[in-house]
């Protein structure tokens, strides 16, 4: 019992040291750290919006038309919109739908794409042919059009918008993971495992998947930004999040009409989209630099 406990502690110690080393490398990357701070700030802003701003998401009951289009002021730092709602409050609340669309789309896409890619790459032959031809079909479809088709078939809602984007997204992960698996399959540690008589599912779980997770994580992080962008584009054209729920894409869409006179209405949500997308892309680059054990060889 004692020994078993010590075992676990020592084993975690190795992992901990590994994470600590990664942490140190990451902290040296100024851009990645700044990106992480931006993302965390937006996430906290979205979660704690009710406590951060005195204004509710959808205005105070009746539209307060007397206060519409007030320019940025101490009272309304980002100004107000065409219905007199506080833009700062709506940017904060809008982070909820944008960030969760980005995150969920990528989670669904990775969950579908990774196992399919690993199977196609590891087994090859007809399994590969079948899986890859199906992904080709999905890739050949214009993503926005497919999303529109799904939204019109299943109804216009937040969940359907998310599903629609995810369905156009997973083939990229299948391709990425398949390519990685193809090269991993030829690596000697996989040959060694086969030679030892390790069963195929175990080989995929222990040797293939952990080694494809780094590129997948990097890709996924950058993709959250793109998914947010696509989500914004969908609500911009009126699919997905429905008013009066706050959403960055929808706000830019409504605000663009007033852009010449009242630029703050569209500019601040637009800036939010820009910042978050950029932050996720830079964070992805940072993770890639840190997580690859090959690039950080430290010989004892």
């Amino acid at each position: 019992m004692q020994r078993w406990l010590g075992d676990i502690i020592r084993r975690n110690e190795a992992r901990l040291l590994e994470y600590r080393r990664m942490g140190r490398a990451f902290r040296r990357d100024v851009l990645a750290v700044a990106s992480l701070i931006v993302i965390i700030a937006f996430a906290l802003g979205a979660i704690f919006a009710p406590w951060l701003t005195p204004y509710p998401e959808q205005g105070e009951g009746e539209p307060n038309l007397s206060e519409k289009f007030s320019p940025p002021s101490p009272e309304h730092p980002f100004g107000t919109d065409n219905l007199g709602r506080d833009v700062l409050a709506r940017v904060l609340y809008g982070g909820r739908s944008s960030l969760s669309i980005g995150l969920m789309v990528v989670v669904i896409a990775v969950a579908i794409g990774t196992p399919l890619g690993a199977l196609a790459g590891y087994f090859g032959g007809w399994v590969d042919e079948l899986i890859m031809r199906v992904t080709d079909m999905f890739l050949a479809f214009p993503p926005l059009l497919l999303a529109i088709a799904i939204a019109s078939a299943l109804g216009n809602s937040f969940t359907n918008a998310m599903l629609a984007i995810a369905i156009t997204w997973w083939p990229w992960y299948t391709r990425l993971v398949r390519a990685q698996t193809l090269s991993l399959r030829e690596r000697e540690f996989v040959a060694a495992a086969r030679g030892m008589g390790v069963r195929t599912p175990t080989i995929i779980a222990r040797h293939i998947l952990p080694n494809v997770m780094t590129p997948v994580l990097v890709q996924a992080t950058s993709d959250i930004g793109s998914a947010i962008l696509t989500g914004a584009a969908m609500s911009f054209i009126g699919l997905g999040v429905r008013p009066p729920t706050a959403d960055w894409g929808a706000m830019v869409s409504t605000g663009r009409v007033y852009f010449l006179g009242q630029p703050w209405f569209a500019a601040f949500p637009g800036l939010a989209i820009f910042l978050v997308t950029l932050a996720f892309n830079l964070l992805g680059d940072g993770i890639r630099d840190v997580a690859d054990p090959q690039t950080r060889r430290s010989v004892q």
Binding site: F189, A191, A192, G197, P210
Partner: peptide, 22 residues
């Protein structure tokens, strides 16, 4: 075949590619 593999093994040239880095 799997149980016969217990009796025959292989050691490769480059340990850094034959040992899973993770």
């Amino acid at each position: 075949l799997r149980s016969l593999r217990r009796r025959m093994q292989i050691v490769f040239q480059n340990p850094f590619s034959s040992l899973n880095p993770r």
